[in-house]
C-alpha cells in the first residue's frame, strides 16, 4: 500500500537508540503551537518557498515548483509504496548495528498505522528494528496493529492539564494519556519526550504533574527526556506562508533551567516530590 511522507532523513542520532533513518509521515491531529515540523501537520501536499535560495527568476510563476532551478520552491509530501520505502531504509542497513534501525516520525505517524505495519513487516523480515515517534492522538487500535512489529515508542507528553493541553495543541489529552497507559501496560519500551516551552510548560507545577502521571504508569518508562524549545518551526511556517501560532514571548529554556526541571521531573516520577 501507499503512505504519505514528507522526508526521509538518514544518519539520525537523536530519534531512538543508535544510528537511525527517520521517516517523517504527513498528517497530524494536533496543532501544537511550537511544532517544529509544521509541514507535517496537513495531510495535503504543500509548497514551501525558501526565500534565501530564490533567485527571482519567475520560472515557477509562483506555483510550478518543478520549474524552479534553485530548489527554492519545493513540494512537501510524496506518496510512496511500503516496499519502496523499506528498500530506501534498507540502504543504510550496513550502519545500523545491533541497536539502530528506522524511526517513523511526523506529523503523527500513527495516523498511517496500516502503512507502517506493512513497512515494518518488510523491514522486520530483514532484521531492521522499528521505533515509532508518536504524540498519541490516535485510537489505540492503531497501536495494536503495530505491536507485533514494534515494541519501542518515543511518546510525547506535552502538558498534564487537560484544558491547557487543548489550548496549546488543539485537543485535550484524555486519549493521549489513555494510550500512554495502555502502551505501558503492553510492556513495550517507552521513551517519554517532553518539549519544554517557556511560559507554557516550563514551570515546576507542570513538570510535577507530568511526573505524577508517569509515576502511575504500569511500567516505569525506560527514559524520560526534556527537549528544549527551538525555533525551526518559525522559519518553516514562513516558508509555508502560514502564521507561526506560538503564544509565548520567551519560549527558550536555558540549560541550567532545563537541568533543574529534569531533577524536579525525576523526583516526581519516583513519587518523591
Amino acid at each position: 500500500m501507499t503512505g504519505r511522507i514528507f522526508q526521509i532523513q538518514r544518519f539520525c542520532t537523536h530519534d531512538g537508540p543508535g544510528l537511525r533513518t527517520t521517516v517523517f509521515m504527513k498528517g497530524c491531529g494536533l496543532k501544537c503551537q511550537w511544532c517544529h515540523n509544521p509541514e507535517g501537520i496537513s495531510w495535503e501536499y504543500q509548497l514551501m518557498r525558501n526565500q534565501k535560495k530564490c533567485i527571482a527568476c519567475m520560472r515557477c510563476q509562483g506555483t510550478q515548483w518543478e520549474r524552479c532551478p534553485s530548489g527554492a520552491l519545493q513540494q512537501v509530501g510524496m506518496d510512496i509504496e511500503a516496499a519502496t520505502l523499506a528498500e530506501l531504509v534498507m540502504r543504510d542497513a550496513p550502519f545500523y548495528g545491533t541497536d539502530g534501525g528506522v524511526t517513523f516520525s511526523g506529523g503523527e505517524s500513527m495516523l498511517q498505522a496500516d502503512f507502517l505495519a506493512e513497512t515494518m513487516a518488510l523491514l522486520s523480515s530483514c532484521g531492521i528494528a522499528s521505533v515509532v515517534d508518536t504524540a498519541g492522538f490516535v485510537p489505540f487500535s492503531a497501536y495494536e496493529k503495530l505491536l507485533p512489529y514494534c515494541n519501542h515508542f518515543l511518546f510525547d507528553v506535552k502538558l498534564a492539564d487537560k484544558e491547557k493541553h487543548r489550548r496549546f495543541t488543539g485537543q485535550d489529552n484524555e486519549l493521549i494519556l489513555s494510550n500512554l497507559f495502555r502502551l505501558s501496560q503492553s510492556g513495550c519500551r517507552l521513551w517519554i519526550r517532553i518539549p519544554v516551552i517557556g511560559q507554557i510548560n516550563d514551570d515546576e507545577a507542570e513538570l510535577c504533574a507530568i511526573g505524577r502521571i508517569l509515576s502511575k504508569l504500569p511500567h516505569p518508562p525506560e527514559k524520560v527526556e526534556l527537549l528544549p524549545y527551538h525555533d525551526m518551526g518559525r522559519e518553516k511556517c514562513i516558508q509555508l506562508g502560514t502564521d507561526y501560532p506560538l503564544a509565548s514571548d520567551s519560549p527558550y529554556v536555558d540549560n541550567d533551567r532545563l537541568h533543574t526541571l529534569q531533577q524536579i521531573l525525576e523526583q516526581a516520577c519516583t513519587g518523591h516530590e
Binding site: 542520532t13 537508540p17 543508535g18 544510528l19 550496513p94 550502519f95 545500523y96 548495528g97 541497536d99 539502530g100
Partner: peptide, 12 residues
C-alpha cells in the same frame, strides 16, 4: 551512544 555510532560507521 555516540561512541557506538562511530563504531558502527567504522565497522561498516
Amino acid at each position: 551512544s555516540s561512541l557506538q555510532i562511530l563504531k558502527n560507521l567504522s565497522v561498516a
